[in-house]
Amino acid sequence: MSAETLAWPGSYGGDAKPRVGFFTDTSICIGCKACEVACKEWNRIPESPQGFTGKSYDNTLDLGANTWRHVAFIEQRVPADADGGASLVEAAERGGLVEREGLATSKEGDGVRWLMSSDVCKHCTEAACLEVCPTGALFRTEFGTVVVQEDVCNGCGYCVSACPFGVLDRREGDGRVWKCTLCYDRLKDDREPACAQACPTNSIQFGEVDELRERAEKRLAKLRGDGQSEARLYLADEEDGIGGAGAFFLLLDEPEVYGLPPDPVDSRRHLGAIWAATGAAAAALGAGLVAAVFGGR
């Protein structure tokens, strides 16, 4: 059973559905961006042109009110022998093609790796956004996902600063917060989210979180066995700072490489420390005031 949340499944009683989410296997992402387009089409998200960014083939840059799926493109130089195999360049050089024939493609023996990864709202088990929302616009659905109700959101923005991933964002000219709903409307119709349906390689897999985690573990073991020593699961662990996520990832390198926080923490976990610090500050301020008022005499 995937980790219980404050509101799911308990508060739904018999209406609770199994918790669903995404397993995004970035090792088979081909960077087609079909997920970005399908998401925008289905959810009728406004266009958000940023112009030519020069960040490889990524002209979307990050998740936001108008981008609920974002494919990152990372170009990495890798040593020729990385991942247990020689690059084409190395192989050609070893074959003596350079000396014998004058035929070679060489660049100091370096190879290039092009990482692609489709990012999305993580639908955290411990979702700070939901807890700080003063209007109840953010809520936990019967599927265990986290959704903003646009007719309730008043645009206060507390959730924006609470999200450890920078997912939540206010829409310009609208003021309210918009993010991935894991296609709540489609789930109610027994259909998978638009991005997962559009993904041609099954890099984005939709399903029950428990089953997806098993699948992810198997895939990780396979990749590790094939020599992908840096491969790892990200946010699949219930012991992590957000209690695991409904949308988790298989990455081929450290999270920072993909622009993801390495150790995200539910900001509410700091509340104790924050209140303690606030108390200390208040005490100091009070002492200062006392000193200011009475010290002069």
């Binding site: 087609c32 112009g51 030519f52």
Partner: peptide, 23 residues
């Protein structure tokens, strides 16, 4: 590119595709 279709008549006219490869 993946984002555009041949001479662009079917993709440079679509906002969601155009913003992905704008120039």
């Amino acid at each position: 590119l993946t984002e555009h279709h041949t001479a662009g008549g079917m993709s440079r006219t679509v906002p969601y595709l155009s913003e992905l490869q704008p120039e």
